[in-house]
């Protein structure tokens, strides 16, 4: 795996990698993906689904309810004047 690729993947995933990590993970991923190339031999398959069992039309009725006190959640998040604080935007 090229350095450029692993650097791009790390950036998309929001991970800082040291030079040593960059090289190590690139080698690991190379090993892993090489061995995974056996998948190319698998037949293409006509359909796919996102679950191993059929999960169809499971819907919730439109009834408002809150079973956990939002104050407890706010307390966990450390809010300021009710707002959750976050980092700089630009």
């Amino acid at each position: 795996m090229e350095r450029e690729t692993i650097a791009r993947v790390a950036k998309v995933a929001r991970l800082n990698l040291t030079e040593e990590e960059m090289e190590r993970y690139a080698n690991d991923l190379d090993d892993i993906l090489n061995s995974f190339s056996v998948l190319d031999e698998a037949p293409a398959g006509e359909s796919y689904s996102f679950n191993p069992i059929p999960v169809i039309d499971v819907l919730r009725e439109d009834e408002p309810a809150q079973d956990i006190d939002p104050q407890a959640l706010k307390a966990q998040m450390g809010t300021y004047e009710g707002y959750v604080r976050g980092p700089r935007l630009s």
Binding site: V84, R85, G86, S90
Partner: peptide
């Protein structure tokens, strides 16, 4: 230019 986020 240095605004931080207050999120609701």
């Amino acid at each position: 230019g240095e605004e931080i986020a207050f999120v609701d």
